[in-house]
C-alpha cells in the first residue's frame, strides 16, 4: 500500500498527510501523482528525500492540472496508458485561486484526470493567509479581525459547483474526517473516464488553531453543523447526499477553533455568528441534508 513514507515534515496532526494517504490507498500503485506547490509538496520532497512511493511530479503553484494533462497525454501517445491513473492533488490556493485557469482548461477539454482539492481554507504554507476558500468571518493573517472587521469578508468560493458546471462526469465533496467515505469517492472518481473532481475538507491544526489531536474531530463538526455539505454529483445531478440528523449549532464548530475565537469576544459577534448559521441553514435546504 503506497501511503506516504514516514519522515515527511508535515506538522503533527497534519491534515494534508492524512488526505494524501487516503488518496494513495484509494488509487493504488498504478498511478502518477501531480502536486502543485504547497504544504504537501514542500513537506514531502526536501531534496534528496521523498515521501512518495508512486511516481510524482511537482512543477509550479498554478499548473498542476495542466501538468496532469501532459502526463496523461504522454502516456497515451507512448502507448503506456494501461490502467494508470493520473491524479493531481493540491491545496485550495493551488486549485481554486491561482490554479483556477489550468483546472478549468483541463476539465473543459475533458482530460482523463482526477483532481483532488485538499481544502484547508487558507494559504497555510506561507503562514495562514486568506484564500478564496477561506470561510466567512474566519481570521487569517491577511483577514484579521479588527474594529472594522470580523475577519474574512466573503464566503467560500463554491468550487465543486464550478467544476460540475464544466460538465464533469463526477464531482464529490468529502472530508478527511470520513476516511472510508473519502477513499470510496476517490476510488469511484479514478474509475470514471474523463475529468473527475474531489473536494476534501481538511482541518489544519496550525492554521485553524486547534490541538493537534483534534484534526478529525473538527472535520466531523463541520459536517455535523452543515457547514460542510457532503454530496456526489454525477453528470451534473446531485445523486447522493450525506444526511445530517439534527444539525448542531455552528457555535459548536466555531468555538473549537482559534480562527473564530474573536466572534465570541467581539461586540456584534452574535450577529456575525448568526450569519454563519444562515450559511449552514442554506446548505441544509439547498442540499437537502436533513
Amino acid at each position: 500500500m503506497s501511503r506516504l513514507a514516514p519522515g515527511h515534515r508535515g506538522c503533527a496532526g497534519c491534515c494534508d498527510a492524512m488526505a494524501a494517504n487516503f488518496v494513495l490507498e484509494a488509487i493504488g500503485d498504478d498511478a502518477i501523482v501531480i502536486n502543485p506547490t504547497g504544504c504537501l509538496e514542500v513537506m514531502t520532497t526536501p531534496y534528496p528525500e521523498s515521501a512518495w512511493e508512486v511516481p510524482w511530479i511537482h512543477s509550479l503553484f498554478e499548473n498542476a492540472a495542466a501538468v496532469a494533462t501532459g502526463v496523461e497525454a504522454a502516456l497515451r501517445a507512448l502507448g503506456r496508458k494501461g490502467d494508470t491513473k493520473v491524479v493531481a492533488m493540491g491545496g485550495d490556493g493551488g486549485t481554486l485561486d491561482i490554479g483556477m485557469q489550468a483546472i478549468s482548461g483541463a476539465f473543459e477539454r475533458g482530460d482523463d484526470i482526477t483532481y483532488v482539492c485538499i481544502d484547508n481554507e487558507a494559504y497555510m504554507n506561507t503562514g495562514v493567509q486568506r484564500s478564496g476558500a477561506t470561510p466567512f468571518n474566519a481570521s487569517t493573517t491577511t483577514s484579521p479581525p479588527g474594529s472594522q472587521s470580523f475577519g474574512n469578508p466573503r464566503p467560500k468560493k463554491n468550487m465543486p459547483a464550478i467544476m460540475a458546471a464544466h460538465g464533469s462526469p463526477y464531482v464529490a465533496t468529502t472530508s478527511i474526517s470520513y476516511p472510508k467515505e473519502m477513499m470510496r469517492k476517490v476510488k469511484k472518481a479514478v474509475g470514471i473516464e474523463g475529468p473527475t473532481y474531489i473536494h476534501a475538507h481538511a482541518p489544519c491544526t496550525t492554521g485553524w488553531r486547534f490541538d493537534t489531536s483534534k484534526t478529525v474531530e473538527i472535520g466531523k463538526l463541520a459536517v455535523e453543523t452543515a457547514l460542510w455539505p457532503m454530496y456526489e454529483q454525477e453528470e451534473g445531478e446531485i445523486t447522493k447526499v450525506r444526511k445530517v440528523k439534527q444539525p448542531k449549532p455552528v457555535e459548536d464548530y466555531l468555538k473549537a477553533q482559534g480562527r473564530f475565537k474573536h466572534l465570541f469576544t467581539m461586540e456584534g459577534g452574535d450577529e456575525a455568528i448568526a450569519k454563519i448559521q444562515a450559511i449552514a441553514d442554506w446548505n441544509i435546504k439547498h442540499y437537502g441534508l436533513e
Partner: peptide, 22 residues
C-alpha cells in the same frame, strides 16, 4: 551524495528523517 540531473529523487526516502524527536 551526488546531485541527480533535474533533481530526480528515489521513492520513500524520507525514512532517513526520524521525526520521533519532535
Amino acid at each position: 551524495m551526488k546531485i541527480t540531473i533535474g533533481g530526480v529523487v528515489e521513492p520513500g526516502t524520507t525514512r532517513a528523517n526520524k521525526t520521533g524527536g519532535w
